[in-house]
Design a protein around this nucleic acid. Structure first.
Length: 566
RNA sequence: UGGGGUGUCGCCAAGCGGUAAGGCACGGGUCUUUGGAAUCCGCAUUCGGAGGUUCGAAUCCUCCCACCCCAGCCA
């Protein structure tokens, strides 16, 4: 697994070319500019990896800048979560954490400068009137009757807007560009509006707030950003980005470059929809392990390097796309396979009594924590007369391709002994309650002197020493690859998977897991990767989250057989 | 129906006039004390379509088609 060769992409090429031609005196300054109005998700991770990755690769800097120009949507809770998530992903903004609100004074002065140049005016049309005057996609707009107000009057009105003399909606400041532009975003866009709301950082200092298009390009310029990378939907705004910087005297003129945002199958990546899932209680919160949020994935146990590796592999381009979630799952397994110590856990226990094993005797077996990495050391596993195996690992009437335990059949208990099933004990309802087996004392550790083969190796746990645990199995949050495709009159929630969470009680885990650290990640052999839930697990009541299952070719065989049968 | 974009394997994605990289998925083999991992092999005579230019086109030109974005005092 090579992680050094990061695939190139068109943005990297632009930066390289700029460096080659000495465009920004050899500087590369990017920025990740979230609005603190929600939690970060894997789509943001793509942007974070791109922006911080570029800075890292070209010896530049990436600023973390909060685009906090709309006080009614934003909150410190979100800025804290965003900082935590970026850090956890493995990136460092150093001293470069900024807020658009840091620049409110300068931004205000730029607005005044625009008025002085007769490039902005106070418009007193209502919201509805502004919309009507804007025209449509196919018809040009009409000039606002306030468009030719004198500079002095504009200055006075804008000062009074700032002073709080007017109610919200009474006036706005607009850039004077071109009401007939085929690009609607150039039809005299609003750049300041009155909002009598407290801002999470500036409190009630302001009652007018700048709009994104105005604040963003100027913030970039103030910070000396060289490459302002954003997603495709801002492409229409690019001429506006340049208009402000060309019209005003600014420190520098960054280049805006757009790329396609990430779409991932079987989930949704829009803050609006994610917030809906949280508010609906479809999930337990932003950090619900089923969420595609950074915090959800962190809680689930996904390692940050898996997310980085995923972002490297999906590439950066301009075509709309939907990445198959199996690629993410592959990246997670790839990291965990190398790093997760192996242990045994039985999720759906079936009791096994070894009839020829001495009662009361407990054997201590040695097993490596990672069969391919001896440096990880060993653990001891107790073995006794009563054990648990997985219910799925036994079939009374096994089909052709099932080669686990069945009546009369011999299998290996991993790192234990060979056992042979002698008897099936059932209750009055015909349910299998227990298996009576015999073991071969010569097979201790999992091999025999005669070298005979068994078809299967099962995981197991010693009944008297095992620790009980709860295990939470997560499946895709949606049942369809593109949840946004719903029947007429339904929205994405129509496709929510009712079985996205399965809680398994009464699981039995080997005693080595007794002191497992919060958040620690393990492979439960033959099952998958699991982590100790950092929020609800306690030493007394262990709770594990399934991060991802192992690849399961047996499940594939079963699915194929099922298909043939029907 | 205005403007701005995008179309290369099931899903991503290189390619930038010299004869289709890579990853995921999928199928098969080897190995195996995880039906895991590892490893090997296979997987686009063809680049949205149709014309044209050229010795040569996914790359250049023309026309057409499909999809995405824009009419917030959101970002």
């Amino acid at each position: 697994m090579s992680t050094t060769a990061i695939a190139s992409n068109f943005i990297k090429s632009i930066v390289e070319e700029d460096l080659r031609t000495g465009k920004n005196n050899g500087h590369v300054i990017t920025r990740f500019p979230p609005e603190p109005n929600g939690y970060l998700h894997i789509g943001h991770a793509k942007s974070i990896c791109l922006n911080f990755g570029l800075a890292r690769e070209f010896n530049g800097a990436c600023h973390l800048r909060f685009d906090d120009t709309n006080p009614i949507k934003e909150d410190v809770e979100y800025v804290e979560s965003i900082k935590r998530d970026v850090r956890w992903l493995g990136f460092d903004w150093g001293d470069n954490m900024f807020f658009a609100s840091d620049y409110f004074d300068q931004l205000h002065d730029y607005a005044v400068a625009l008025i002085r140049r007769d490039k902005a005016y106070v418009c007193s049309l209502s919201t509805e009137e502004i919309r009507a005057y804007r025209g449509t996609l196919t018809e040009p707009g009409r000039d606002s009757p306030y468009r030719n107000r004198g500079i002095e009057e504009n200055l006075d009105l804008f000062a009074r807007m700032r002073a709080g003399e007017f109610e919200e909606g009474r006036h706005v400041l607009r850039a004077k560009i071109d009401m007939a532009s085929p690009n609607v975003s150039l039809r005299d866009p609003v750049i300041y509006r009155i909002k009598k709301a407290a801002h999470h950082r500036t409190g009630d200092t302001w009652c007018i707030y700048p709009m994104y298009d105005f604040a963003h390009c100027l913030s970039d310029s103030i910070e000396g950003v060289t490459h302002s990378i954003c997603t495709l939907e801002f492409e229409n705004n690019r001429p506006l980005y340049h208009w402000f910087l060309d019209t005003l005297e600014t420190p520098c003129h960054p280049e805006q470059i757009e790329f396609a945002r990430l779409n991932l199958s079987y989930t949704v990546l829009s803050k609006r929809k994610l917030i809906q899932l949280v508010q609906d209680k479809t999930v337990s919160g932003w950090d619900d392990p089923r969420m595609p949020t950074i915090s959800g994935m962190r809680r689930r146990g996904v390692p940050p390097q898996a997310l980085r590796s995923f972002c490297d592999r999906i590439g950066v381009a301009r075509a709309d796309s939907m990445v198959d979630i199996s690629l993410l799952e592959h990246c997670i397994r790839e990291v965990l396979n190398i790093r997760a110590p192996r242990v045994m856990a039985v999720l759906r226990p079936l009791k096994v009594v070894i009839t020829n094993y001495p009662e009361g005797h407990v054997d201590e077996l040695e097993a490596p924590l990672h069969p391919e990495n001896p440096e990880m050391g060993n653990r001891t596993i107790p073995f006794a007369r009563e054990l648990y195996i997985e219910r799925d690992d036994f079939m009374e009437e096994p089909p052709k391709k099932f080669y686990r335990l069945a009546p009369g059949r011999e299998v290996r208990l991993r790192y234990g002994y060979y056992i042979t099933c002698r008897e099936v004990i059932k209750n009055d309802h015909g349910e299998i309650m227990e298996l009576r087996c015999t073991y071969d004392p010569a097979s201790r550790g999992g091999g025999t002197p005669d070298g005979r083969k068994v078809k299967a190796t099962l995981h197991w746990v010693c009944a008297q020493t095992a620790k009980p645990a709860q295990v939470r199995i997560y499946n895709h949050l949606f049942t369809t690859a593109n949840p946004n495709e719903a029947p007429e009159g339904k929205d994405f929630r129509f496709n929510i998977n009712p079985n996205s969470l399965e809680v398994l009680e009464g699981c039995q885990v080997e005693p080595h897991l007794a002191g497992a650290e919060s958040g620690s990640r393990w492979q439960f052999e033959r099952l998958g990767y699991y982590s100790v839930d950092p929020v609800e697990s306690t030493p007394e009541e262990l709770i594990f989250n399934r991060i991802i299952s192992l690849r399961d070719t047996w499940a594939k065989v079963q699915a194929a057989e099922g298909k043939n049968a029907s």
